[in-house]
Each structure stands twice: as structure tokens, then as C-alpha cells.
């Protein structure tokens, strides 16, 4: 087989990674942008989303799609509420101070991880996808100088993977509309731009912070629910999404949502393609190298605005 079909397959795998990564990273970026909090526990909210998705689906039984639908709707809300509670009980007490919140979120990371280990255990458990039809993919060949479609053997994806890309896209559009078109979004953006003036104009900043922290964690959990039928739930699965989210957020520009999405697509796609043709380790090395280059030559990120 020529290289084209492989490239398409790798791009599709990369697009799934990119979609999930974009959701996770947008959550991290929102929290950093509005609250100036570097949330080291972000990956654990992702992990919690996957583990709770397993729990909900195994509780409900019946057709896999039913349990999955309930998980998709309820788990991000549950994780969001937990995160909002963590904000009000922990981060608020350290006045959302940038340095102290890093230490505090490291604490939250270990609490979530170890409680999951003590209750859920060390196993990796699968969640059955709600639907999983195999879709053969066509490729073009030239027969006698005229293009013609054919279906190479083994070139396929699943309907679920395409659904993940579609769902993530919808959620991201929803977040964008929420930030730009709603009253809550207006309050969040005003808080992000100038916390003191937000207070001086009656914006309940503490409540906005709890909402944003919950929303950020909820997005990570949503991403995890979407990926868990492909990846399995495990109590240590939060590490990779955390690292990749930080890479994406730094490349895209801290606090810039469009930048975060573009960087997630860039990193997700290149991760997929490089992993297929070379090795996953090389993909991580290149991504980290890109972060280093961005930090040296464009510290505000590709889309970030220089802070004065």
C-alpha cells in the first residue's frame, strides 16, 4: 500500500486525540485565564471523569448506549461540582494566590488519585462504546489515468471515533458561545481582564471562580467520558492529559481559547502522525521541544497577547 492511506489513518487517530485534548486543554486554559491558577490537579479531574463513567455505566446496565448517555450527561456535572467545592474549601482559603494554589492543587491531585486507588482499585477497566460500527475508508487510485475509489484492506475507523470528534467540536462551539454570548461568559471575561474592577462593579468574583473551576474540571471529565470507551479507565491515567494540556496551553497562549484549540489540533494531529510513522516517544519529544522553542521565541504563545 502507498503512504497516503496510512497518512489518512494516522490523521484520523490524531484527530481523535486532538478533539479530546482540545476539550481538556480548554478547561485548563479557562481556569488559568480567569483565575490565574495553575491547576496541577486537572489531569485527576480527567481521570475521575473516566472512572466515574465506568461506575455509572456498570451501575445502569441494559443497552450500553443508555448507560453511556447517562454518564456523558451526569459525570461532567458531578466532577464539576466536586471541583467547585474544592475551590470554595481549599483555593479560596489561600486567596487564589498563584504560588500557593500550585501547592494546593498538587495536594488535591494526590487526594483524588489515592482515594480512587483505595476505592476503585489499581485495575484498568473498559467501558463499552454506545455504538461501534466499523467503517471502511476509501482511497483514490488511478486506473488508466482516471481517478477511482477503492477500499484498501484494513483501512478503517469506527463510527464511535468519528462521534468523539463531532461531540468534542460541538462542546467547544458551546463553550465559545457561552463565553461570548451569555451573561455568565461576560462576567467571566470581565473577571479575567481586571479582577479588582470586576469587584468594584459588583461581580461576585469568588462565585465566578468557583464556577470557572467547576467548568474547567467538567470539560476535562467530559473529554475523559468520551475517550474512555477507546482507552479504559485507570487511576494513573491523568498524567498524560495533564502534560499534553500544559503543552497545548503554553503553545496556544495562556488564557486564549482559540489559541488553545489550534494548538490542540496541531499537537494532537502531529502526535497521531508521528506515533504511527516513527514512535510515540518521538512525538512527545518533538512536542516538548516545540514548547521550549515557543517559550524562548514567543513566550506569550502563538495566540497570546503580551501582558503589560
Amino acid at each position: 500500500m502507498e503512504i497516503g492511506p496510512y497518512l489518512m489513518l494516522a490523521s484520523l487517530e490524531g484527530a481523535v486525540t486532538a478533539a479530546v485534548l482540545a476539550l481538556t486543554a480548554v478547561g485548563l486554559s479557562l481556569v488559568f485565564g480567569v483565575m490565574r491558577v495553575v491547576n496541577v490537579a486537572h489531569g485527576e479531574f480527567f481521570m475521575l471523569g473516566a472512572v466515574l463513567a465506568w461506575w455509572v455505566t456498570s451501575l445502569i446496565g441494559g443497552h450500553p448506549a443508555l448507560g453511556f448517555a447517562v454518564a456523558l450527561l451526569s459525570v461532567p456535572v458531578l466532577v464539576g461540582l466536586l471541583a467547585a467545592a474544592a475551590d470554595m474549601t481549599v483555593l479560596k482559603r489561600v486567596s487564589h494566590d498563584p504560588e500557593r494554589t500550585i501547592v494546593a492543587t498538587i495536594g488535591i491531585l494526590y487526594i483524588l488519585q489515592q482515594v480512587t486507588l483505595m476505592t476503585y482499585g489499581p485495575d484498568a477497566r473498559p467501558v463499552v462504546p454506545p455504538f461501534n460500527a466499523r467503517l471502511a475508508l476509501p482511497w483514490v487510485e488511478f486506473v488508466g489515468g482516471r481517478p477511482q475509489l477503492y477500499w484498501p484492506w484494513g483501512l478503517s475507523t469506527t463510527s464511535y471515533k468519528l462521534a468523539v470528534i463531532g461531540a468534542a467540536t460541538l462542546v467547544l462551539i458551546g463553550v465559545w458561545l457561552g463565553m461570548t454570548r451569555t451573561r455568565a461568559g461576560l462576567l467571566m471575561r470581565a473577571t479575567q481582564m481586571d479582577r479588582d474592577m470586576a469587584l468594584a462593579f459588583g461581580i461576585p468574583v469568588e462565585r465566578v471562580y468557583a464556577l470557572v473551576f467547576g467548568l474547567g474540571a467538567g470539560l476535562a471529565a467530559m473529554a475523559a467520558v468520551l475517550i474512555v470507551p477507546i482507552q479504559q479507565a485507570h487511576y494513573l491515567m491523568g498524567g498524560d492529559p495533564l502534560l499534553l494540556s500544559f503543552i497545548v496551553v503554553i503553545i496556544g497562549g495562556l488564557g486564549s481559547l482559540p489559541g488553545t484549540v489550534v494548538a490542540a489540533i496541531l499537537i494532537g494531529l502531529s502526535d497521531g502522525i508521528i506515533s504511527v510513522f516513527f514512535s510515540p516517544t518521538l512525538a512527545k519529544i518533538l512536542a516538548t521541544l516545540l514548547v521550549a522553542l515557543v517559550l524562548v521565541f514567543r513566550p506569550q504563545g502563538l495566540f497570546g497577547e503580551r501582558r503589560t
Partner: peptide, 14 residues
Amino acid sequence: GLFADLTVAQNLQI
């Protein structure tokens, strides 16, 4: 102390 990225109308709305 304006909300610099918001429009005039949004600043007033706040």
C-alpha cells in the same frame, strides 16, 4: 480600569 477586550456596550452593561 476598563474591561479592555469588551465592547463599549458590554462595559456599560456591566
